[in-house]
Amino acid sequence: MKKHLILSQLALCASLAFAGVSVQAQEVKGSAQAAQGKVWLCVGCHSIPDYRADYPFTYKVPMLGGQNAAYIASALAAYKKGERKHPTMRSVAASLSDQDMADLGEYYAAQTASSPNNPLK
């Protein structure tokens, strides 16, 4: 009887651990609609054609409209982790959750380079 109880408890622990890993492994789904309230962080630089930022070096700021959503989210995550070095982008990305990054990726993927501020029109 005691052996059966121990095996039951082990099976329960294993299934709970597996369920936790499954939930954690699920990918965050982005929403272009949700990003509309978050994009103000980006448009000041990324919606200006041929814009160049000059701190601490001169950077040609890319237009983001039409970029792949996963690429945008991945780039933001790399800034947040310190794998990419631009100081302004690192500070902006540090304030973003994984959901924010996925939403911003979808927002810019829904656009073209010539429609940087109105992806849902």
Results as ranks from 00 to 15, higher is better:
K3T: 11
H4P: 00
H4M: 14
L5D: 00
I6F: 08
I6K: 04
Q9H: 02
L10F: 10
L12A: 14
C13W: 06
C13T: 11
S15R: 11
L16N: 12
A17I: 11
A17E: 02
V21C: 01
S22G: 07
Q24W: 15
A25E: 11
A25S: 15
V28S: 12
G30V: 09
Q33V: 13
Q33S: 06
A35L: 07
A35V: 09
W40K: 15
L41F: 10
L41P: 00
C42W: 02
C42R: 03
C42Y: 06
V43K: 10
V43D: 05
V43P: 02
V43M: 09
C45R: 14
H46Y: 10
S47R: 03
I48L: 08
I48N: 00
P49L: 04
R52V: 09
R52L: 07
A53E: 11
A53R: 12
A53G: 12
P56W: 08
P56V: 11
Y59H: 12
Y59K: 09
K60L: 07
V61K: 04
M63L: 14
L64K: 04
L64R: 04
G66Q: 10
G66R: 11
N68V: 04
N68T: 02
A69P: 01
I72V: 15
I72E: 02
S74I: 05
S74M: 14
S74Y: 03
L76M: 15
L76R: 05
A77T: 14
K80Y: 07
K81I: 02
K81L: 11
K81M: 14
R84K: 12
H86Y: 06
P87V: 08
R90D: 05
R90Y: 01
V92N: 06
V92P: 00
A93T: 03
A93M: 01
S95V: 02
L96T: 08
L96P: 02
L96F: 08
D98N: 12
D98T: 04
D100V: 03
M101D: 00
A102E: 04
D103S: 09
G105F: 09
G105L: 12
E106T: 07
Y107T: 00
Y108D: 02
T112E: 09
T112W: 08
T112P: 01
P116K: 04
N117A: 13
N117Y: 08
N118Q: 07
L120V: 01
K121W: 00
K121G: 07
K121E: 01
